[in-house]
Amino acid sequence: MKVIFLQDVKGKGKKGEIKNVPDGYARNFLFKKGLAVEATPANLKELE
């Protein structure tokens, strides 16, 4: 799953980066803790 990092995550990505991460990791950790959002067209547009 492609995500946009909202904060630096040690060993995974830095704020503003767009990266592919495993689905479970994204849903169960990154999204729940507010560290990233899914890289949807709407979210990508907001990032610009």
Results as ranks from 00 to 15, higher is better:
residue 40 T to G: 04
residue 43 N to L: 12
residue 24 G to D: 15
residue 22 P to V: 07
residue 44 L to W: 06
residue 11 G to I: 02
residue 25 Y to H: 05
residue 10 K to L: 10
residue 23 D to F: 14
residue 31 F to S: 02
residue 47 L to A: 08
residue 33 K to Y: 15
residue 15 K to P: 04
residue 31 F to Q: 02
residue 46 E to F: 12
residue 28 N to A: 11
residue 33 K to E: 12
residue 1 M to H: 04
residue 40 T to E: 04
residue 30 L to T: 01
residue 34 G to M: 09
residue 12 K to T: 09
residue 37 V to Q: 06
residue 5 F to E: 00
residue 16 G to L: 04
residue 32 K to A: 12
residue 13 G to I: 04
residue 32 K to W: 08
residue 10 K to W: 14
residue 4 I to M: 08
residue 38 E to I: 09
residue 13 G to R: 01
residue 24 G to P: 10
residue 42 A to P: 08
residue 44 L to R: 06
residue 2 K to D: 12
residue 18 I to N: 02
residue 12 K to N: 09
residue 23 D to N: 11
residue 27 R to P: 03
residue 35 L to T: 02
residue 12 K to F: 15
residue 18 I to K: 03
residue 40 T to H: 06
residue 14 K to D: 05
residue 20 N to H: 14
residue 23 D to M: 15
residue 40 T to A: 05
residue 28 N to P: 01
residue 43 N to P: 04
residue 41 P to T: 12
residue 38 E to V: 07
residue 26 A to Y: 10
residue 47 L to R: 07
residue 4 I to A: 03
residue 7 Q to W: 10
residue 4 I to Q: 04
residue 18 I to W: 04
residue 2 K to Y: 15
residue 9 V to S: 02
residue 29 F to T: 07
residue 7 Q to Y: 14
residue 11 G to E: 05
residue 44 L to T: 08
residue 6 L to Y: 03
residue 4 I to K: 05
residue 41 P to E: 13
residue 12 K to V: 15
residue 20 N to D: 14
residue 22 P to M: 08
residue 35 L to Y: 13
residue 31 F to M: 07
residue 30 L to Y: 03
residue 25 Y to S: 04
residue 44 L to F: 05
residue 20 N to L: 15
residue 38 E to P: 13
residue 39 A to K: 02
residue 8 D to I: 03
residue 16 G to Y: 09
residue 37 V to A: 05
residue 37 V to R: 07
residue 43 N to I: 11
residue 16 G to D: 04
residue 23 D to Y: 15
residue 37 V to M: 12
residue 2 K to I: 14
residue 8 D to F: 08
residue 31 F to P: 01
residue 31 F to N: 01
residue 47 L to Q: 09
residue 9 V to D: 01
residue 17 E to G: 02
residue 40 T to V: 06
residue 31 F to R: 00
residue 31 F to H: 01
residue 24 G to E: 14
residue 35 L to E: 02
residue 16 G to E: 02
residue 45 K to F: 11
residue 10 K to S: 12
residue 40 T to L: 06
residue 30 L to G: 00
residue 19 K to R: 11
residue 34 G to I: 02
residue 36 A to H: 00
residue 1 M to S: 04
residue 38 E to T: 05
residue 48 E to N: 14
residue 13 G to A: 12
residue 36 A to R: 01
residue 34 G to T: 03
residue 18 I to T: 07
residue 46 E to H: 09
residue 21 V to I: 07
residue 18 I to H: 03
residue 19 K to S: 07
residue 42 A to V: 10
residue 6 L to M: 08
residue 9 V to W: 05
residue 41 P to D: 13
residue 29 F to P: 02
residue 10 K to Y: 14
residue 47 L to G: 06
residue 7 Q to I: 11
residue 7 Q to R: 14
residue 7 Q to D: 08
residue 29 F to D: 07
residue 7 Q to E: 10
residue 39 A to D: 03
residue 15 K to V: 08
residue 34 G to Q: 09
residue 9 V to F: 03
residue 2 K to H: 09
residue 2 K to L: 15
residue 32 K to T: 10
residue 44 L to E: 07
residue 26 A to D: 05
residue 5 F to R: 00
residue 6 L to P: 00
residue 20 N to E: 15
residue 25 Y to W: 11
residue 9 V to N: 00
residue 36 A to D: 00
residue 5 F to Q: 00
residue 37 V to H: 03
residue 9 V to I: 09
residue 25 Y to Q: 04
residue 39 A to Y: 12
residue 6 L to E: 00
residue 9 V to A: 02
residue 17 E to P: 00
residue 12 K to I: 15
residue 30 L to W: 02
residue 28 N to H: 11
residue 3 V to G: 00
residue 38 E to A: 10
residue 11 G to K: 05
residue 14 K to Q: 11
residue 13 G to F: 14
residue 36 A to P: 01
residue 20 N to A: 11
residue 4 I to R: 04
residue 19 K to A: 10
residue 23 D to P: 13
residue 15 K to Q: 08
residue 12 K to E: 11
residue 14 K to R: 13
residue 42 A to Q: 13
residue 36 A to I: 06
residue 23 D to A: 15
residue 8 D to T: 10
residue 44 L to H: 07
residue 16 G to M: 05
residue 2 K to G: 04
residue 23 D to V: 15
residue 26 A to K: 02
residue 21 V to R: 00
residue 18 I to Y: 03
residue 42 A to H: 13
residue 21 V to W: 03
residue 35 L to A: 03
residue 26 A to W: 08
residue 47 L to D: 06
residue 8 D to G: 06
residue 30 L to V: 01
residue 48 E to Q: 13
residue 39 A to V: 08
residue 34 G to V: 04
residue 12 K to L: 15
residue 13 G to N: 02
residue 45 K to M: 13
residue 33 K to F: 15
residue 25 Y to P: 04
residue 30 L to N: 00
residue 29 F to G: 03
residue 48 E to I: 15
residue 44 L to Q: 07
residue 38 E to R: 10
residue 42 A to L: 11
residue 46 E to P: 07
residue 48 E to F: 13
residue 48 E to W: 10
residue 13 G to L: 02
residue 42 A to S: 12
residue 8 D to W: 08
residue 35 L to H: 03
residue 9 V to Y: 03
residue 5 F to K: 00
residue 37 V to G: 02
residue 28 N to M: 11
residue 42 A to E: 14
residue 46 E to G: 11
residue 29 F to L: 06
residue 38 E to H: 07
residue 15 K to T: 09
residue 41 P to R: 09
residue 23 D to G: 13
residue 47 L to N: 08
residue 20 N to M: 15
residue 47 L to T: 07
residue 26 A to I: 08
residue 35 L to D: 01
residue 11 G to T: 05
residue 37 V to D: 02
residue 35 L to M: 07
residue 31 F to V: 07
residue 24 G to K: 12
residue 27 R to Q: 10
residue 15 K to H: 05
residue 39 A to M: 07
residue 8 D to Y: 09
residue 10 K to I: 10
residue 4 I to Y: 10
residue 23 D to T: 14
residue 20 N to R: 14
residue 44 L to K: 05
residue 9 V to H: 02
residue 3 V to Y: 01
residue 5 F to A: 00
residue 24 G to W: 15
residue 43 N to T: 10
residue 38 E to M: 10
residue 18 I to L: 08
residue 46 E to L: 14
residue 39 A to R: 02
residue 18 I to G: 01
residue 6 L to A: 03
residue 22 P to Q: 08
residue 25 Y to M: 08
residue 34 G to Y: 08
residue 5 F to D: 00
residue 14 K to L: 12
residue 7 Q to A: 13
residue 27 R to L: 13
residue 44 L to G: 04
residue 33 K to M: 15
residue 46 E to Q: 14
residue 22 P to Y: 07
residue 23 D to K: 13
residue 39 A to T: 02
residue 38 E to Y: 06
residue 42 A to G: 11
residue 36 A to S: 02
residue 6 L to G: 01
residue 1 M to A: 04
residue 16 G to W: 11
residue 17 E to M: 06
residue 21 V to Y: 06
residue 38 E to W: 07
residue 11 G to W: 08
residue 28 N to Y: 14
residue 8 D to A: 07
residue 45 K to D: 09
residue 22 P to D: 12
residue 35 L to F: 10
residue 8 D to Q: 05
residue 27 R to K: 13
residue 11 G to P: 03
residue 8 D to S: 09
residue 3 V to E: 00
residue 14 K to S: 09
residue 39 A to Q: 03
residue 20 N to F: 15
residue 9 V to P: 00
residue 30 L to H: 00
residue 28 N to D: 14
